[in-house]
Computed example of a mutant assay.
Amino acid sequence: MSSKGPVGGSLAIEVQLRAEAAASLKALGHRLDRQLTELQQLGQQVQAMAPSPLRDKKLAEYNEKRREAEYRKWTLIVQREAMGLFNHDDVEEIYRVPPKLS
Rank of each mutant, 00 (worst) to 15 (best):
P99W: 01
E20I: 14
E81Y: 07
S10H: 14
R67K: 12
M83Y: 00
Q45R: 15
D56G: 10
Q47A: 11
Q41I: 13
I77N: 06
L25M: 05
F86P: 00
E61Y: 08
S10D: 13
D56E: 12
L101S: 08
L54E: 10
H88L: 03
L39Q: 00
V78H: 06
R55L: 07
D56N: 12
A69Y: 02
E38Y: 08
K4F: 12
V97C: 00
S3N: 09
L85A: 15
L25I: 07
E92A: 06
A12G: 09
G84M: 07
L39A: 05
R31P: 03
K57Y: 10
P51H: 01
S3T: 15
R31L: 11
Y62M: 03
A48K: 09
L85D: 03
H30D: 14
S3D: 11
Q47E: 06
W74G: 15
S102G: 15
K57M: 04
K58L: 13
R66N: 11
R72S: 10
P98V: 07
S2W: 04
T75M: 15
P98G: 02
K65G: 12
F86G: 02
A22Y: 02
D33M: 11
V46Q: 01
I94C: 06
P98Q: 00
A22E: 08
A82Q: 09
E92F: 02
E61K: 15
D56I: 05
R31E: 09
A21L: 15
G8V: 04
P98R: 04
A21S: 15
K26G: 05
E93F: 08
E68T: 13
E61P: 10
H30K: 13
V46D: 00
R66Q: 11
L17G: 03
A12C: 06
L36S: 00
K73E: 07
S52Y: 01
T75N: 06
S52K: 07
